[in-house]
């Protein structure tokens, strides 16, 4: 990622012509970060960092600033830094968000901004969690087009209405914000989780796909869609605005109507 300024606080005001003087719109914000290093200590702990930052900057900029200037050992994932790769989902002020989409000014920066790793997944170091179980559940859903017969000689055609049927669930970036915000998942990690069901929804309702029945069968499991309690945490957490709970309910509906 080439655009990350290591020192956003000091570098940005020059680029903002409305500010009367450099640094005038900077604000001292405390970031309370959940630190954990298995090589140094067995226990996780909270550490406060004070950062001079433009409140219009994002939490990711603050993390970069901390890592670059205060503590190089701070560990977190990020890749595109523009809300598409889904690498930097974390728990910010108690809610799962992408650090690259959470603006500091929206997080009551007068008080410490609390940054934690995603809940329900094993913490590897600081803000980095083991995503493998999450991806395992996703893989279980057969997240690819399954067809039978010969390959067609032209595109597999689809009407705009057929495409619109599953449009919402194509937006998923696999950041795990939804699954790791689900209380059922926290208590029983065998639950497939919202993201996997969203991935299944994307193909179950795709007119070109032929394995919808198989995916429904997988989700009919006692760790499948029936575990969903319509808590709506996933819908609230989704940085892409996917109506996750609605997608899960549609899968339930498809199961009921096709089985009865």
């Amino acid at each position: 990622m080439a655009t990350a300024a290591p020192d956003p606080g000091a570098a940005q005001p020059d680029a903002v012509p409305v500010s009367p003087s450099p640094g005038a719109n900077l604000m001292a914000v405390t970031f309370r970060i959940r630190r954990f290093d298995p090589e140094a200590a067995a226990e996780a702990f909270w550490q406060d960092f004070r950062v001079e930052i433009d409140p219009k900057e994002r939490v990711l900029d603050a993390l970069h600033s901390i890592k670059g200037e205060q503590d190089g050992s701070l560990t977190f994932r990020r890749s595109c830094a523009h809300g598409i790769c889904g690498s930097d989902a974390m728990r910010i002020n108690g809610r799962n968000r992408l650090a690259c989409k959470a603006l500091v000014k929206d997080l009551s920066p007068q008080r410490p901004v609390v940054v934690e790793p995603l809940k329900g997944l094993t913490v590897l170091k600081d803000l980095v969690v083991d995503m493998e179980p999450f991806f395992q559940a996703y893989r279980d859903m057969l997240p690819f087009l399954v067809t039978s017969g010969n390959e067609p000689t032209r595109e597999r055609l689809q009407s705009p209405a057929q495409r619109a049927r599953f449009d919402d669930t194509t937006k998923c970036i696999l950041c795990a914000a939804c699954t790791s915000s689900c209380p059922v998942f926290w208590n029983d990690g065998q639950y497939f989780g919202p993201a996997a069901i969203v991935g299944a929804h994307r193909f179950i309702f795709d007119s070109r796909d032929e394995a919808g029945e198989r995916r429904l069968e997988i989700l009919n499991d006692n760790h499948g869609v029936w575990r969903c309690r319509t808590i709506f945490n996933c819908t609230d957490a989704c940085p892409r605005g996917i109506q996750v709970t609605k997608a899960i309910q549609e899968v339930k509906q498809a199961l009921v109507t096709r089985r009865l």
Binding site: F36, A42, T122, N220, N222
Partner: peptide, 26 residues
């Protein structure tokens, strides 16, 4: 393991309960 361990979900061990597909939950 020194980490505050959250046992990885969907890890297939011998103790993992068999999935119970069937329409009971539905």
């Amino acid at each position: 393991h020194p980490a505050p361990l959250v046992e990885p979900p969907r890890q297939r061990t011998t103790r993992t309960p068999r999935s119970t597909r069937g329409n009971f939950e539905m």
